[in-house]
């Protein structure tokens, strides 16, 4: 398994050279194993959540009938005459999901806005410091960035200058996120590199071999050995 582990990790990278059989093998394994696992996990989830609870001590549990009905209704997508049954259940799934999280919206925008307002002028009572200056800046930047999202002329035109500054505030987030993401994710590459060097058994030779194969392919396309055209066009 360590060999498989390292192969999958670096084969995924090999597409940076070009689309190649190692990459497609890794991709096919990820999709196949993932699909199989998902099926098993969901059969198990339905079994534990519904089937085992449908009949308890010889009595039918009526509350468990609804998941059965909803689940079976999904199959109606394949029956054109009953397509509306499928649609009803998919819409219900969507709206019930929304219902669970709907209140978080107003909860968030109200508490965050009030929180920023409460702290904005803390420097008046607590004195000027990095923290109080930051709190004032946060409130100002929040108001500016929110103004960027105005849709209508009546709100957007009089606030053009603020919206431009709002765009800058959003850009600050963008610039910082792009860089921190790159630096954070690069640690993942190093972590696996160290694993290939220090792990037991050492598997560093797998990416090294891949690199050599790609290097050879660059000068002498390996598909010439097979003598077949490739469907890869890039």
């Amino acid at each position: 398994m360590p060999y498989l582990n390292t192969f999958i990790f670096f084969a995924a990278y090999s597409v940076l050279y070009k689309n190649n059989p190692m990459y497609r093998l890794a991709q096919s394994l990820v999709v196949g194993v993932g699909a199989g696992y998902l099926l098993v996990a969901n059969i198990n989830a339905f079994n534990r959540g519904v089937i085992m609870n449908t009949f308890v001590n010889g009595n039918i549990n009526w509350a468990m009938l609804l998941p059965w009905i909803l689940g079976l209704a999904y199959l109606c997508i394949f029956i054109p005459r009953l397509i509306n049954v499928y649609r009803a259940v998919s819409i219900l799934t969507l709206t019930v999901g929304m219902g669970v999280v709907l209140p978080y919206g107003p909860a968030l925008f109200w508490t965050v806005s009030v929180g920023y307002a409460q702290n904005a002028l803390n420097f008046l009572s607590e004195g000027l410091s990095v923290s109080t200056l930051g709190q004032l800046l946060t409130a100002v930047c929040y108001a500016l960035a929110l103004s960027y999202f105005f849709f209508t002329d009546y709100a957007a035109k009089p606030t053009t200058a603020f919206r431009k500054l709002g765009r800058v505030v959003l850009l600050v987030y963008t610039a910082m996120t792009i860089t921190t993401t790159a630096l954070g994710k690069i640690n993942l590459v190093q972590w696996k590199v160290l694993d290939t060097l220090q792990g037991v058994p050492a598997t560093w030779w797998i990416p090294a071999l891949m690199f050599i194969v790609m290097l050879i392919d660059n000068f002498y396309p390996l598909r010439n050995l097979i003598g077949k055209g490739s469907e890869v066009s890039s």
């Binding site: 925008f109 009030v114 409460q118 002028l121 929040y142 929110l146 849709f151």
Partner: peptide, 25 residues
């Protein structure tokens, strides 16, 4: 309805600006 969203945003900006002043003072 999208135009109505602007009213909510303007209100929240008002909360921060006017509320900030009132809390601060």
């Amino acid at each position: 309805i999208l135009a109505g969203e602007d009213l909510i945003k303007a209100f929240l900006i008002g909360v921060v600006v006017i509320g900030g002043l009132l809390f601060g003072l």
